[in-house]
Write a protein that binds this DNA or RNA. Structure first.
Lengths: 135, 135
DNA sequence: TTGATCTGTAATTTTATTTATTACAAATGA
DNA sequence: TCATTTGTAATAAATAAAATTACAGATCAA
């Protein structure tokens, strides 16, 4: 997990505050202070996950796909995550070692459990609650 | 968070199985299939956190610092983690934007909460329980 | 007390990942 | 028709992670 979750939450917060008015990727990128093409890539991903809608062409832009009260932070996390939260060693351990041979299987199980508890936490929080904290 | 947690758990599992016998960084590295100097660096870190002991010189090596039943996976996680689990965008958001101005503060709060729930999960698991899963 | 072995640690290089940049086709609206 | 904006790919630059190399210092055994 990298800065993508932060960026996604930032995007979703902006769209919530826009209340249905379309925002351009350029405007969003300038709030985040990140590259517009990169932001569009994340916007595409969020759209593919049903969290936002987009409209092409002049006067196009982005808006929430459903009410902020119906979006849970776990939905955003699921859209953005790519690999196990605790990271994965990329060396395959030594299969001649009893520990090396079995470690990945047990780590996988552990990581799944941990990730489940993280998701449970994020399920309890809606985007509306999060954005409601802003002045 | 990267592969360091995986490596640390792997190390601690090997030391548990060694039952007090000193293991060399070379042997540990070969089980993990990683570089020995890198492994020593993590071993130093684990020692600085009181989880293992080391002995220098010929016939030196590493062993658990306390009983595996007294070590919680959260202890290992705390020793290894460096930054927020969900990552942090490194661009500072635009302070001229109401959302950009406040987002990091609210993300920080959220990340702390999420990390707390993750830690709570890891507190419930001892190293002894984890290593007990191995054949 | 000498030599082999192993830890501790720093400096450097290599590799991988992330982010930014550039470019342009396609859609849309004025 | 032209300006604007999304969608997406290809490439480059920057950053982070891991490996490599090197060597001082500790320890043990012959």
């Amino acid at each position: 997990m990298n800065g993508r979750f932060s960026i996604a939450i930032h995007i979703m917060t902006l769209l919530t505050k826009a209340e249905g008015e379309l925002l351009s990727s350029e405007l969003i990128a300038s709030s985040i202070n990140a590259n517009a093409a990169l932001v569009r890539k994340e916007l595409s991903n969020l759209r593919n996950n049903g969290l936002i809608i987009s409209k092409e062409g002049a006067a196009g832009g982005y808006a929430l796909g459903k009410d902020a009260a119906q979006i849970r932070l776990s939905d955003i996390y699921q859209a953005v995550k790519r690999q196990s939260i605790l990271g994965q060693a990329k060396n395959l351990p030594n299969p001649a070692c009893p520990v090396g041979r079995q470690i990945n299987q047990h780590l996988d199980t552990l990581y799944k459990e941990v990730e489940d508890s993280l998701t449970e936490k994020l399920v309890t929080k809606t985007l509306a609650e999060f954005t409601g904290q802003f002045d």
